[in-house]
């Protein structure tokens, strides 16, 4: 069985999509008002872009390496599934930290809902970059174009 892994391309597409996602996340939060920023605009622009790079690269890396482990054939569905799964894993870890150290880690439902929706948006944006770069064709459930 041949397996095609697109680590590099996935990470690259994810990083580019992640930067865009980070900036869009900042704008979405400003629109929803779920969290009032405590830092300045310049600081947040840099931190959201860097954070977006990390999250996007991880989502894109797993998207590129996922192969058959990721259900769906459409690259958008695959990317949204992957990014949401990554976010959920982190969120489960956060819930465990909150249970261990409740005075340090507070869980806020509006932020959680916003985060879940933003994670799906991250997948869509990574898939958008991927499609723009590589095209949606070329995946057969086992391989992605590298």
């Amino acid at each position: 069985m041949s397996l095609t892994f697109g680590f590099k391309d996935g990470i690259m597409a994810g990083a580019v999509g992640g930067v865009l996602w980070g900036l869009v996340s900042m704008a979405v939060n400003s629109a929803t008002g779920v969290f009032t920023p405590e830092a300045g605009l310049v600081h947040d622009t840099v931190s959201f872009a860097l954070g977006g790079v990390l999250f996007g690269a991880v989502a894109g890396g797993f998207l590129g390496a996922g192969g058959r482990a990721i259900p769906f054939r459409n690259v958008y569905a695959r990317a949204v599934f992957t990014s949401t799964l990554v976010w959920m894993l982190l969120r489960v870890g956060g819930a465990m930290l909150s249970a261990i150290e409740p005075e340090r880690y507070h869980v806020l439902t509006p932020e959680t809902v916003q985060g879940l929706l933003l994670s799906a948006l991250l997948g869509a944006m990574v898939a958008g970059v991927w499609s723009f770069w590589k095209g949606t064709a070329g995946e057969n459930g086992n391989t992605l174009k590298a």
Partner: peptide, 14 residues
């Protein structure tokens, strides 16, 4: 450095 980012993406924080 990433305090606001963490809140916006829904991760638990103080």
């Amino acid at each position: 450095a990433f305090h606001d980012f963490r809140h916006v993406i829904g991760m638990p924080c103080h």
